[in-house]
Design a protein around this nucleic acid. Structure first.
Lengths: 186, 186
DNA sequence: AAAATATGTCAATAGTGCTGACATAAATGG
DNA sequence: CCATTTATGTCAGCACTATTGACATATTTT
């Protein structure tokens, strides 16, 4: 029931065809390779902009998630990025020193350093997201209606089942967060 | 005509609504973030296996493309991976030293070192591709018919137009190459 | 024979991740 | 109030993957 499509067992090639060791299913080469090339170009646009600022992909990821989740706790950011605080440290310090991110003490818990983008940080984050959105929008326009939903379902399915729900909730939550900001409702 | 879906210009919020600086289109947050998480888990499975062998992602990419394109020239591999020969050097040397890849002199041009996987190399490459295929097959099974084609079109569209045709040709060519090998036609 | 090509290698550097150890401030639980 | 835990930061060192620049070797092309 879960073995449709690509991993289907190879059809026997003739009557009583002997399969010595079992050739197993042929890998899904096309999507494996397309994911590689697609992701490379997808992150390539931001890379160019970031390089001019002396930043790399790590800076992009931090800036992106802080922009999307204003007031994010450091611990939560570490959790999303799945890196150590030492790795985050260097990158975050640069973003703070150069005025793209600020830290604010937590209201309830003064140990927390809640992360926020500055106007410059938001501008940069939006510029980078804009580049990626332009690329995506180009594809979706070609694919026609249903393309967006199909892509979303494919990509969401590729996430570990263990984390999928959490990621989807985070995306939905960030969407609400940002639309409040746009409305000035915050 | 290319501005359907996500990047559509925001609808005016009321009669004669003034848009001060132009909020521009809202980025396509969901696909941007899903691509990040999906790709991370997609490469995560192989990462674990590779780590036990003392290899990293760079080794995976080299092994993958050599397995898919037997007799690949070093120069072509550099071109596909878009890295320098110095970067390739170390990684390739390790794969050769540990018996996963061999080099053969070109028949016509003896300067060339054509790359081939050994049986061990093929086994490893197929194991890694198998992990990724299992993940992909799980999604495709959920998506139903058309899912594979939709994913392929989305991902292919995400590749720079400049390189898309070349990538698709490479994939098609490698498919022929490998099926010849399976048939013993080579 | 000279020039171009395919490949390899040495050295230095950058970006991003890791582990381990330790420090500080604040919250929390007896 | 004090001990512990929590949230965060920081120093030091290491690994992997990428870069640039320079140079070497073998082979093909002109």
């Amino acid at each position: 029931m879960a073995d449709i499509s690509v991993t289907a067992i190879p059809k026997p090639r003739g009557p009583a065809a002997i399969e010595p060791i079992a050739p197993i299913a042929e890998p899904c080469w096309d999507l494996i390779e397309l994911l590689f090339f697609a992701y490379r170009d997808f992150v390539g646009d931001p890379d160019e902009v970031l390089a001019k600022l002396g930043f790399g992909r790590a800076h992009h990821r931090v800036l992106h998630f802080v922009n999307r989740n204003p007031g994010l706790k450091v611990a939560d950011l570490l959790d999303v990025l799945r890196i150590t605080k030492q790795s985050l440290g260097r990158v975050l310090k640069q973003l703070i020193d150069q005025g793209y991110i600020v830290q604010r003490e937590g209201d309830n818990d003064r140990r927390q350093r809640l992360l926020h983008v500055t106007p410059a940080g938001e501008a940069l984050a939006m510029q980078l997201a804009g580049l990626q959105t332009t690329r995506i929008a180009g594809v979706l326009a070609e694919l026609g209606p249903g393309g967006h939903e199909a892509a979303r379902r494919f990509l969401a399915g590729m996430i570990d089942g263990e984390h999928r729900e959490r990621v989807l909730r985070m995306i939905a939550h960030a969407d609400r967060s940002r639309s409040r900001r746009r409305d000035g409702t915050a």
